[in-house]
């Protein structure tokens, strides 16, 4: 199995398209950091003007932790597209190139092949998040320095001590990894039905967008189905930046996301095992 996984990773990282996601994340993160470095204080003054009317705010609010939170909030909504780019290509791309039929004629079981392909997509997803963490957290800390983290929510503001933040980011990135893996699993499942990777990529994004819209609607009918939509749990990472942290809610969201991963990947394997390869 290690051989198959190595081969799958080799194929992923030899394709130029794989690096689009890394370049895109680098560009967006660096642009945000540059913009905040140049004009971050004016932006912050505007954002916290409601707060300063009643409270006195001291210290360096525009610090590395704040910039990282700002970046994550902006970026994690768009990362699914970058993940679908590779996960949606895992089977459909092979079918499109005509290499799927050669793979299937090799003495490797379809289940094992699928499992290794998903593992490879998962490793790509994790590497993308690690890259994002390196740029958004560590580079921001280098550029903007440390400080307490001020988070403005719709009905309150949370201030977290600079000594109490690092573990929260570690946990948030771990949670984001589960959420992004659910997206990768969905794209992977859709990938087995297509012979062109555009289809699964667009379908994954459409599902994520539609489900996200449904998750945010306050209509009672949608409120009832919201807990069952995986997109409603994807932003669970923000829970680590509450004080106190609601572990029960975060754990439930993580469990639902993991259940989705199991269902998506399990279905993909079951369907692919008996699928006729006509490409």
């Amino acid at each position: 199995m290690w051989t198959i996984l190595q081969i799958e990773l080799f194929k992923i990282f030899r394709r130029p398209r794989t690096y689009i996601a890394f370049v895109a994340i680098s560009a967006i993160v660096l642009l945000i950091q540059l913009a905040l470095y140049v004009d971050g204080n004016s932006y912050l003054n505007f954002v916290i003007q409601g707060l300063t009317q009643n409270f006195e705010v001291n210290g360096t609010i525009l610090n590395g932790y704040f910039v990282c939170y700002f970046i994550l909030q902006t970026l994690l909504i768009h990362v699914p597209l970058l993940i679908a780019l590779v996960a949606g290509d895992m089977i459909a791309g092979e079918a499109n190139m005509g290499t799927l039929r050669i793979l299937i004629t090799k003495p490797v079981s379809r289940t094992r092949l699928m499992f290794c392909k998903f593992l490879a997509a998962l490793i790509y997803t994790l590497l993308l998040l690690v890259w994002m963490a390196l740029l958004s957290l560590f580079c921001s800390l280098l550029i903007f320095g440390k400080g307490d983290l001020l988070i403005l929510k719709s009905d309150n503001a949370v201030i977290l001590s600079s000594t109490d933040i690092m573990w929260r980011y570690a946990a948030a990135f771990a949670f984001a990894a589960i959420a992004m893996s659910a997206v990768a699993a969905l794209a992977f499942l859709l990938s087995i039905f297509a012979e062109n990777s555009i289809g699964p990529i667009v379908a994954t994004m459409s599902i994520v967008i539609v489900f996200t819209i449904l998750s945010t609607m306050d209509i009672p009918f949608f409120k009832n189905i919201r807990p069952y939509l995986f997109t409603a749990h994807m932003l669970g990472w923000k829970g680590f930046f509450s004080d106190p942290v609601n572990y029960k809610m975060i754990g439930k969201s993580a469990a639902i996301l993991m259940l989705h991963i199991v269902v998506f990947v399990g279905s993909a394997m079951a369907i692919f095992r008996r699928k006729d390869i006509l490409s």
Partner: peptide, 23 residues
């Protein structure tokens, strides 16, 4: 099988090496 489709973005050696290992 029909067309000899291989990984176009890889070299001939890399393609052969991959399928040798899978075989």
């Amino acid at each position: 099988i029909e067309r000899p489709d291989l990984y176009k973005y890889l070299t001939a050696f890399e393609n052969l090496s991959i399928f040798a290992r899978l075989s």
